[in-house]
Design a binder for these strands. Structure first.
Lengths: 287, 287
DNA sequence: AGAAGCGGTGCATTTGAAGCACCACTCAAG
DNA sequence: CTTGAGTGGTGCTTCAAATGCACCGCTTCT
């Protein structure tokens, strides 16, 4: 995919360029419109082609769903679930959930792709993931919400940090001590930005990173404060670590959303897994 | 379609049975499951096959939508609208609407299929019609309502009929004179049945017919009363005919529904036509 | 100027689908 | 029961359509 030129694409498909070229032209003929812009450096999809590839991807994924339904009605619990998720889900929640599901349905396989908020939605609309479990998604067009769970931002620090003893943690407390923040494309950072903008304070991070795992470890080395949502912390067996909710007066509560491509019919395995997630996230009425 | 045996199907497709047979077997192979039940008298789709044909029909219709979108973005207003409708729409409403639409978009073609309530819904779910405009549909699963318009049942009679002079027409008035009713599969009959059941009266039709046009003409020959909904009467230039609403105390008000296959994305031409229908049926906010 | 890309085309070649003849089987009618 | 007409399925041959190869005209970068 996305080879940029017919020759390269043909190579990827173990074909000659001429064969592929004629395939394309023949298809364009019977389709009634050009699909590619012919540029001197190669080819690129034109708007009609974009429409078409979108249709085609949907068609392939829908056939996959039919396959899985057929397998399902022959009694075999087989299938594949692909899920795009935010970083917070990888340490505890998702491994547990997948293991739980596979205990009942060993024939079902999974692919997990850790994505930032924008990329997760892109995955859905290109049909490369069935489900997305994302903290504070961005655009939300073509994103059909199956479930929404509030996730207030927590401060993460070492046990010995002065703030660890306080009863209520305010945002200004964190900003006045050395703090580390996620990179701008991440949802937690987004909410922090909103908070400081409203309160005319400023972030002065000593460190910015795109990995929550890294940040979680780093706060133990230097007496710093980090930020994370509870689902990425629950079950943490790290004895040296403390996490406490930041006052809701200071930082808006974010939401962890489970979603799918709008209007799409999911394969049985994915639909069932989505349902399990919904149950374990505390709601019983998800679709 | 629905030939019942490979040989007959092959004949319809100008193929030999052996070629078609091998096509099927090869497809079943790579699909991973049987599609047909092999019976001594021929073949029939098994459940997996039903799932698959549904997918396939949707796929074809969706490709049609993409085609129409492509034509649309190249500036050309082309496309095709297929609509299944109740009988009442054929004399005045639908011809007028289609002519209106084609005045603006001469490149758009139409197919109109008059169907009873059940068949119209079946047309939608087999993708053989894009839209359905039906009086009192039956099942409503897979039927996505785009618009609903109340249509109280009217009595139809010749100008000289005794009832023609009355100010308010009651159901019992109609039942006490010779009356003509539609066949049971039609929506008007359905509502009449509900009415008499509640009121412990009885239908004693002198004539039962599946054609409203026939019934409309017949009431002039014999001093009888017929039944129809107003959209099938408005604009009637038949001078000898009178129609009056039957008291809503007696007969429940039916609804004319514009709908599509649930969850399906319509071709541009069909979507626009649905919108026009919505506007002319008196609502401005249809999808 | 030359080389390395690119899309596109004419012609020979290959491969895979279709046609034909035939088998095994079921079923209904004689 | 026998028979004949229907069914799906298969080996072999035939043929057409898709592919590969060599080459063209073109742009772009060295």
């Amino acid at each position: 995919m996305r080879a940029g030129s017919i020759r390269k694409a043909a190579e990827d498909m173990n074909l000659t360029a001429s064969a592929l070229n004629r395939r394309i032209r023949r298809f364009e003929d019977e389709f009634g419109a050009e699909i590619f812009e012919r540029l001197p450096r190669g080819v690129r999809l034109n708007p009609a082609g974009e429409l078409l590839i979108q249709h085609f991807r949907g068609q392939v994924s829908d056939l996959e769903r039919v396959r899985s339904q057929v397998a399902d009605l022959s009694g075999v619990r087989r299938g594949h679930v692909s899920i795009a998720c935010s970083q917070a889900l990888q340490p505890y929640f998702l491994p547990d959930q997948i293991a739980r599901y596979r205990r009942d349905h060993p024939g079902v396989t999974f692919s997990v792709n850790v994505r930032d908020r924008a990329a997760a939605e892109r995955d859905l609309s290109t049909f490369s993931s069935d489900l997305a479990l994302v903290f504070e998604p961005v655009h939300m067009v073509e994103f059909e919400v199956l479930l929404s769970v509030p996730q207030p931002i927590h401060a993460v620090m070492s046990k010995s940090h002065p703030l660890a003893a306080k009863k209520e943690i305010r945002l200004r407390d964190c900003l006045e001590t050395p703090h580390i923040v996620p990179t701008p494309q991440l949802g937690v950072r987004h909410l922090l930005e909103i908070a400081v903008r409203e309160g005319s304070r400023q972030l002065n991070p000593i460190l910015e990173a795109d990995s929550f795992e890294f940040m979680r470890h780093y706060v133990k080395y230097e007496g710093a404060v980090g930020f994370q949502i509870p689902i990425g912390l629950e079950g943490s067996s790290d004895a040296g670590l403390v996490f406490k909710e930041i006052s809701r007066r200071d930082v808006p509560v974010g939401h962890l959303l489970l979603g799918q491509m709008k209007g799409r019919a999911l394969p049985v395995a994915s639909a069932r897994f989505a349902n399990q997630l919904a149950v374990h996230l505390g709601q019983r009425d998800a679709v």
